[in-house]
Design a protein around this nucleic acid. Sequence first.
DNA 1: TATAGGAATTAACCTAGGTTAATTCCTTCT
DNA 2: AGAAGGAATTAACCTAGGTTAATTCCTATA
Lengths: 197, 197
Amino acid sequence: MDRIQLQNSFEAYFNEWGYEIDWQRLTVPMDVHVIRKDDYLFQQGDMANRLYFLHSGLVRYVSVSDEGKEFTQTFAKSPRIIGSTKAMVTGDHVLFGIQALEDCMVSSYPWQVFYEQMRQDIGFLECYAKFLERIFITKEERENAFVKHSAERRYLDFCASYPELKNTIPQQQIASYIGITPVALSRIRQRLKLNHV
Amino acid sequence: MDRIQLQNSFEAYFNEWGYEIDWQRLTVPMDVHVIRKDDYLFQQGDMANRLYFLHSGLVRYVSVSDEGKEFTQTFAKSPRIIGSTKAMVTGDHVLFGIQALEDCMVSSYPWQVFYEQMRQDIGFLECYAKFLERIFITKEERENAFVKHSAERRYLDFCASYPELKNTIPQQQIASYIGITPVALSRIRQRLKLNHV
DNA sequence: TATAGGAATTAACCTAGGTTAATTCCTTCT
DNA sequence: AGAAGGAATTAACCTAGGTTAATTCCTATA
């Protein structure tokens, strides 16, 4: 994948929303990151005030508590924007790291400059709003699941939502996504097996 | 408060971001809702695909599980936009209700029509994006707190973030905001009292 | 094919917070 | 002032999930 291809795949992502965007405005150079499986794009606590775009591969957002416990906030599959909106727009340190679950190809732009150049383009703004709506809705739904559903129900929902991940990623990561330990997940799977099947 | 005043307070809210917005584009009539303390603007499961603006008063977003347990997702103080982004943009049923903690004055517009009229205005789009960034960041931070901090820590953080609510709303609601029962909150307060002070 | 190292399971035990219920404390209304 | 009804506290008990550790299972490499 050369730079032009990366640029095209990035632009194609926005075009999916069906708005005209004048990419000529964008003159800031893109950075390219190749991340090997298990490595991090950035670590919790880093500065990450860039717009990252995942061209290929799969990542998870992983947040670790003071006691060292890992929590997986999100799985993200290419092609899509990744990163921390908070860190990007506020310049704060990021509250989670992004780890590659497969080899990944990522490009990035410094957000401040990127936004300054693109904010005159109505198509871009509308896409950006659609993107924000989408990620917000995802969080609303996930908060809802955490608050209203048991760990068992969250596991079943995970299996339904991510059938392709269910068998390809380690169970520890599934456990940390639904907010329990691997031991607890194993117990739940055991219980499910005994009941039906 | 008459309609003109409501309209002005709504527009003033957007102007805080410092963008020029051409409100002349907006011709759809505003609805006005007066909600008495403890009553609901809408209930969980309702259709709520409108843009709601809280002109005066204080509300909470309350989500109830299948077992009937209440969870407070957010406290929102006027002036600000309230409602469910998910329900507004997708037309889905809303996952929580909005309850007035004081008498409230709310206005609303049907989102589809509102957005269709305003999406040509670059100032509006930029404000809308800023608004979405803000509510998303709030959720990122809250998710972080739930995942990484104990109930005790969440209580202390609540007291620091909402000093004015700490003594004006019932403790049950504080408990349901930090995700525990009133009994557990009482225990935590007891423990804190014994340790220091 | 053997083996080393991580992944998952299982079992025993522990703990934070949930549940129920009794008691006390406030308000508010008459 | 007295009564009624909700809010908070406290205590006794329960449970889902955490913790630790031993055991088994896999898969990758020699």
